[in-house]
């Protein structure tokens, strides 16, 4: 196996660990953390490509910089929404937000 492929496998595993957290956890803050794991996995794959594939040399790194910035914005807005919801409903458990139908 190629060097870059080992990093791909690691990134795929980390991504799926994060995906499981997003799908299976009830606490919304842990869901946000798992989302961050998924973003980190993608960053890892991008940096591996930037390091080992000559055609992607500088661009991979720049793309990761942009992803990190957007991830920071996403976390702030996401947590603000969670806290605003917590203030109204006194819970951060995803299953208990069941009065949003219609």
């Amino acid at each position: 196996m190629n060097a870059v492929e080992w990093y791909f496998v690691l990134a795929a595993l980390l991504f799926c660990i994060g995906a499981y957290g997003v799908l299976a956890r009830r606490n919304l803050i842990i869901v946000v953390m798992s989302l961050e794991l998924m973003l980190n996995a993608v960053n890892l794959a991008l940096v591996a490509v930037a390091n080992f594939v000559p055609a992607a040399a500088g661009r991979g790194t720049l793309f990761v910089l942009f992803v990190i910035t957007i991830a920071a914005a996403e976390v702030t807005v996401g947590l603000a929404i969670i806290i605003a919801n917590y203030r109204n409903r006194r819970t951060v458990q995803a299953d208990e937000y069941h009065d949003m139908k219609g």
Partner: peptide, 12 residues
């Protein structure tokens, strides 16, 4: 097929 991928790093 990442044929262009090498074992050595490219450092910009």
């Amino acid at each position: 097929d990442l044929l262009t991928a090498g074992e050595t790093a490219v450092n910009p």
